[in-house]
Design a protein around this nucleic acid. Structure first.
Lengths: 237, 237
DNA sequence: ACAAAAGTGTTCTGCTTACACCCATGA
DNA sequence: TCATGGGTGTAAGCAGAACACTTTTGT
């Protein structure tokens, strides 16, 4: 390695590199976003995305998993890089480049008793508070991306418990797209993927008749992940 | 702002933040990638993506435009953030987080007489040399992304001169997707977008009959950018 | 006249949509 | 028994795919 290269490296300014996670959940009715008040340290009490800084020996992926784990104590969650935000003054304290990830978690698995270090709260997408810095744009981009992804890949399942019913899944898609779907067309297309395994058990309590539970065929799910689903329109009935 | 926040900021390590551009071009037959030897400074003579560092008062977008301008002296080119790469040791000299952008340029506009600071060369996608660091993965991700984008949005035009023929455009799509398309289906679907304006002039020299030139309707192009095109399969004839 | 590329239409198939009735059960 | 949500089938329309011949013109 030649000296002039090292000099070039030396001459550059270094930036803080942060990670922020847009964490989506679904409570059976609405799409939700998990926000935190970095309240212990911050008097302004603005809600913000869960975030943190990348550590010296960490990749971006593992840093964002770690940060998510610190908040939710969940592992193996769906996590995908969204976009990197780097306007010079997005963070007024010091220039910080932030890599945003979006995560899909199953709200039932989220244990809110854990990590009292953070004051966290699930917000309806309809009623988001004002967010820190440019976190609002991050959320906007994330929801767009989620819509696209969900239309093309069967990622909806990541937001549901292991056992779920078709009406639950339909409600989820309706929440993601903000539209109503025809249940006949929806279930036909869904079942035509052969991705679902019908269980003997029925859901109790929600409806009188009870809907059958299904689980996803993990093998096929991974294998067919890149197949288009095209779950977009289709109207009510 | 409370002291403990400032302390937290202080405690973090800073990283170098780089930008790398995956620059696509089309020569009428093949999809090409523009690579540079950062030869003046580098004895190893590895080819690499065009890159640079983000400056203190620059956004990521403007930094990548600037870097592209330094190499090609082109402005107003199609440039889109692809992904951010941050493995701890991807750059052996010092930890560098690199934000990759992909660019579409018209090869005819590219003036290779300019910027002798860089030894640059157009490579066929079939015959890429070994690349610096993780630039190979960047290129892989970029081509996937280009395929997707081109299938959903009419970005193909960005790679062509202002006036182009339908057979040229078809060859471009064939190069992007590595497949052959049926010219009847292709031109029908293309014209059905109403995005093309037929010119009186015909292309000379390439074929005996000569194909009509078209140009794109800029207004509609911008307006309909988000409309799906679905230019994927369709076989030969 | 012939070679080489441009240009153009039709049929078939399968997916998407729209739409309505019966079923099972808890209250 | 009735109200609520679960579950299923069918017909019409449309877009994608497959496919072949004529036109133009330079040599």
């Amino acid at each position: 390695m030649r000296i002039d290269i090292l000099e070039q490296y030396q001459a550059q300014t270094r930036c803080l590199v942060a990670l922020d996670s847009i964490i989506f959940g679904f409570d059976g009715e609405e799409l939700k976003l998990l926000l935190v008040k970095r309240g212990i340290e911050d008097e302004t009490h603005t809600w913000s995305l869960m975030g943190g800084w990348v550590q010296p020996e960490e990749s971006l992926e593992s840093a964002s998993s770690r940060i998510l784990y610190e908040l939710t104590s969940l592992t193996d969650i769906y996590l995908e890089q969204l976009h990197t935000f780097g306007s010079p003054h997005r963070d007024p304290v010091e220039r910080t480049v932030s890599v945003a990830y979006f995560a899909l978690i199953n709200v039932e698995d989220y244990d809110h008793k854990i990590s009292k270090n953070f004051e966290a709260h699930w917000f309806s997408m309809q009623e988001l508070p004002k967010l820190l810095f440019d976190h609002g744009s991050m959320v906007e981009m994330a929801i767009e991306n989620l819509r696209y992804k969900a239309s093309q890949h069967p990622i909806g399942f990541e937001l549901l418990p292991e056992k779920f019913t078709i009406p639950q899944l339909q409600k989820l898609y309706e929440a993601i797209f903000g539209t109503e779907l025809d249940k006949r067309n929806f279930s036909r297309k869904l079942l035509s993927t052969n991705l679902l395994i019908k269980l003997a058990e029925k859901q109790k309590g929600y409806s009188k008749k009870g809907a059958y539970f299904y689980r996803i065929d993990e093998e096929k799910y991974k294998k067919h992940f890149n197949n288009f689903l095209n779950f977009l329109p289709g109207s009510t009935s």
